[in-house]
């Protein structure tokens, strides 16, 4: 990120009123399955998520941002690319719910043709994030960074709430992933310079399974 662009920091702020607080990025089902019980487990989980779902989201966000900077008309084709990379129906629902909320927050904050082009739709979250980043004056690299970063911090925050983890220790763990986040964002931004069909599609079979298990669970605090 260009460092101190406050408009972009707004998009990475966990207080952005865009519905993210109700999504755990798979952490709640991982906790329910006993796969995440402490800060060390959380770090392992988040590192795997970042390199798979996080990379895909970052690349889609970067591609959406690059598209928004041009003569942005329809995002349908990119949204279809996001669908094709999201085989889990529960994850598609979660991505669209968050995309819809982010689009609302972005349209209430900035005016931009890309946001207008998406109006009335519930795009995948990375597509909305890319458009919102463009509207806030950022570029594809910024969109990728914000996507990769918020993917990690959202899960970390959920773990603090679900397990009563020490927030200071979790913050240190997230800081320990900073270089990985930057590397994923850089790869994603690079990939977004190529054709959409070739964007990363890294899968995480356990995340997909968790997403579906969670959608069918009786007891859950988070939407996803």
């Amino acid at each position: 990120m260009a460092g101190t662009d406050a408009a972009l920091l707004l998009l990475a702020d966990s207080r952005l009123p865009a519905g993210g607080h109700a999504h755990s990025g798979g952490v709640e089902p991982a906790v329910a399955a006993g796969a995440v019980t402490d800060v060390a487990d959380l770090t392992v989980f988040l590192r795997g998520r970042l390199a798979t779902a996080g990379l895909v989201a970052a690349a889609l966000a970067a591609a959406a941002c690059a598209h928004a900077a041009g003569p942005a008309d329809a995002f349908d084709a990119l949204d279809a690319e996001a669908d094709a990379r999201t085989p889990s129906p529960a994850q598609r629902r979660a991505a669209r719910a968050q995309g819809r909320s982010l689009l609302r927050a972005a349209r209430a904050t900035w005016a931009h043709p890309a946001l207008d082009a998406l109006a009335g739709t519930a795009p995948h979250h990375p597509v909305a994030l890319g458009a919102a980043t463009a509207a806030a004056g950022g570029g594809p690299g910024d969109a990728a960074s914000i996507a990769a970063f918020t993917g990690v911090t959202g899960g970390a925050s959920a773990a603090v709430r679900l397990l009563g983890l020490d927030p200071l220790a979790v913050n240190r763990a997230v800081a320990g992933l900073a270089a990985d986040i930057d590397a994923v964002a850089a790869r994603a931004a690079d990939a977004a310079r190529g054709p959409w069909a070739e964007l990363p599609a890294a899968s995480a079979p356990v995340l997909d399974l968790y997403a579906e298990l969670h959608a069918g669970a009786d007891l859950r605090l988070f939407e996803s």
């Binding site: 995440v36 392992v44 989980f45 798979t52 990363p200």
Partner: peptide, 15 residues
């Protein structure tokens, strides 16, 4: 895509 490259990634409880 399935990438077996870094054991810290593919061996993650998320993957």
């Amino acid at each position: 895509e399935l990438v077996l490259d870094d054991p810290a990634v593919y061996g993650s409880t998320a993957v």
